[in-house]
Write a protein that binds this DNA or RNA. Structure first.
Lengths: 155, 155
DNA sequence: CTAAGATGGACTAGTTCGGTCGGATATCCT
DNA sequence: AGGATATCCGACCGAACTAGTCCATCTTAG
């Protein structure tokens, strides 16, 4: 169905939030999770992958959190997807990996690879900064220092 | 990972084969399955979906088989994918379906939908005819046992 | 009538995905 | 120094989806 995974959705949501609130300094995983109703542990793992992919920088400790590792304009949607879900491929096979039963008889490889390259180009053409520009206000920004923990009491 | 399903791979393989051998008349599912080493029952299902999507026409009976329902140049890769895997979407939500926990807070919908449109445009830009043109010969015809229709001029 | 072929539904095994848990480690504040 | 807060990381589980299989029915040429 060519759908991108939920983790990628979460990653894009988070990265966009960080881009829109870059001035506020580090944002904790918990705040992000509560803002967007995402399971905190799951989001945490996604954020960690983004850190490993050098898209975010994490700060541990009591006022820790995440922040963009570089300018939002220098970070594309393709970067985010690849950091979370690994190299994006349309076909099972690639130049490196020929593990496909039909590889020897396959005659649609080349055109599909070309299509893949064009899709990647499309994803690379949209920067995180453009995502952040979309809507007037990202979300009502929480006054700094306030801890919105009590919003999440849902039996 | 943005990967397209195996069924789609099979569909593209089959459709390309039919485009390259359009002169031979109907090709049976069994022949296609043997040519490309695809589980016959599975390929049969894929072909049925293509028929339901008006991309192929089937002929039942003892000399039956499948053939393109229209010119290969008027059939895009996007058509094939959608016939097999349903409407292709990048996000969980769409204009019709808002079933996503983050829908109300989501702020990346519009840009992602634009990306989706561009991906679909990319897929629609490649026709099956172009796939068929790629390689010099589609495949060596079956060595023995199966007789294509043209040879059956019996005196 | 019979063989070859399409059609369609139900079913199973395997894998992936979303989500959870527990603990380790780093940092700040008092 | 010590505790509180937060990131980090690996293992785990259940549900959903995917690929593949089986079988029963219908259609048509010979």
């Amino acid at each position: 169905m060519l759908r991108l995974s939920k983790k990628t959705d979460y990653a894009l949501l988070a990265v966009r939030h960080l881009a829109a609130n870059a001035d506020r300094g580090a944002v904790s995983a918990r705040e992000l999770a509560e803002t967007y109703d995402i399971p905190p542990e799951l989001l945490a793992k996604v954020l960690q992958k983004l850190v490993r992919g050098r898209l975010l920088e994490s700060q541990q400790g009591i006022r820790g959190g995440y922040a963009l590792a570089r300018a939002a304009s220098a970070m594309s949607v393709a970067d985010v997807i690849q950091a979370v879900d690994g190299p994006l491929m349309v076909t099972a096979c690639s130049e490196e990996d020929h593990s496909c039963d039909q590889y020897s008889k396959c005659n649609i490889r080349d055109p599909l690879w070309r299509i893949k390259d064009r899709i990647i180009a499309t994803l690379a053409a949209t920067s995180v900064a453009e995502l952040a520009m979309e809507m007037p206000a990202p979300l009502p920004p929480l006054p700094s220092g306030v801890m919105p923990m009590q919003m999440v009491k849902r039996p």
